[in-house]
Simulated scan of single mutants.
Amino acid sequence: MGLSPALATDPDVVNCALAPRLESVRTAREFTKLTLNRWGLGDLFDDIALVTSELVTNALRHALAAASVPEQRTSAWGKRGAGSPGPITQKFGDAPQAPAPLIRLSLVRRAPQVVCAVSDPSSSGPVTREPDWVAESGRGLHLVDSFSQSWGWHPVAAGKVVWALFELDEAAALQEGALQDIGETQTERRYQGE
């Protein structure tokens, strides 16, 4: 049984849900590398991965800290945390526990551009600060601005999305166009019975 048209996915739009953990930055980089390689755009990895890392890190640092996450109840061992041996349980009559907010990384390829977008549950927009070149943090948005052609953010129903746009170089755009043409030709042949 084939996929219905409503369930078919666009191979040029990919998403990755990220948990609110520091390991998510590495997961985002790995997802970006796999996606760009699959698209034949591996030469863009360094710039896009740097920006992806910064956007996910900002979401982890600022957006999730600002988002209110209800305290979870656990068994008799107390509040769950590192080293808590007990599973999360819920007493009869308690309201259902809300899941931890997620960060979502989206990569979109539309020749001659690739967009990296990170959504999070906070409605507060990113703020570019005056860089302190001695501090360990605070330069992330400057890096995003330097390595992408443009960037911005938009509020959404459940938070915001911060995006960065990358232009494909001419060779990559031509290669992608040729790959799309090959794919369309193969699809046309398949439906024409060749």
Score class of each variant (00 low, 15 high):
69 V>G: 01
34 L>F: 09
76 A>P: 07
80 R>K: 08
122 S>P: 07
193 G>R: 05
89 T>R: 13
81 G>V: 07
114 V>Q: 06
89 T>G: 11
135 A>S: 13
193 G>H: 02
116 C>E: 04
102 L>N: 06
102 L>T: 06
25 V>H: 03
160 K>I: 09
20 P>Y: 10
105 L>A: 03
130 E>F: 11
162 V>L: 10
3 L>M: 11
119 S>V: 08
108 V>A: 06
33 K>E: 09
151 W>H: 03
7 L>K: 15
5 P>M: 11
125 G>K: 10
92 F>A: 15
75 S>F: 10
63 A>I: 05
121 P>D: 02
115 V>T: 05
91 K>F: 07
105 L>T: 04
120 D>F: 00
86 G>A: 01
191 Y>M: 14
137 S>A: 13
54 E>S: 14
57 T>P: 00
178 A>N: 06
20 P>T: 07
80 R>A: 08
154 H>T: 12
93 G>F: 07
135 A>C: 08
185 T>P: 02
14 V>R: 06
132 D>Y: 03
29 R>H: 06
17 A>M: 05
143 L>A: 04
64 L>T: 03
160 K>P: 03
176 E>N: 14
157 A>P: 06
127 V>E: 04
3 L>E: 03
55 L>I: 05
12 D>F: 14
110 R>S: 11
13 V>A: 03
171 A>E: 02
175 Q>G: 05
127 V>C: 06
7 L>H: 13
190 R>S: 03
15 N>W: 12
7 L>N: 12
24 S>C: 07
21 R>K: 13
143 L>T: 01
174 L>N: 12
38 R>V: 03
47 D>V: 08
129 R>S: 15
42 G>K: 13
138 G>Y: 02
184 E>R: 14
45 F>D: 01
26 R>D: 07
181 D>S: 10
175 Q>M: 10
108 V>M: 02
161 V>R: 09
137 S>Q: 09
123 S>V: 15
86 G>L: 08
132 D>Q: 02
167 E>Q: 13
116 C>D: 01
121 P>S: 07
150 S>K: 11
125 G>W: 01
155 P>F: 00
175 Q>R: 15
57 T>F: 15
147 F>D: 02
126 P>L: 10
48 I>G: 02
111 A>D: 05
12 D>M: 08
85 P>L: 11
30 E>T: 15
181 D>M: 12
117 A>R: 04
76 A>G: 14
130 E>S: 13
152 G>R: 09
96 P>E: 02
58 N>W: 05
151 W>D: 03
18 L>Q: 00
105 L>C: 04
139 R>M: 11
13 V>Q: 01
99 P>G: 01
143 L>H: 08
102 L>P: 00
30 E>L: 15
169 D>M: 08
8 A>K: 15
45 F>W: 10
87 P>S: 13
102 L>I: 09
65 A>Q: 14
18 L>H: 03
144 V>Y: 11
142 H>R: 13
193 G>Q: 03
149 Q>Y: 05
42 G>T: 11
72 Q>F: 01
158 A>I: 12
169 D>V: 13
12 D>G: 12
21 R>A: 13
172 A>C: 12
118 V>F: 06
68 S>V: 14
79 K>D: 07
187 T>P: 00
122 S>N: 02
172 A>P: 00
56 V>S: 00
86 G>V: 08
176 E>R: 15
44 L>E: 05
126 P>S: 09
31 F>M: 00
130 E>M: 14
47 D>K: 14
118 V>C: 04
161 V>D: 07
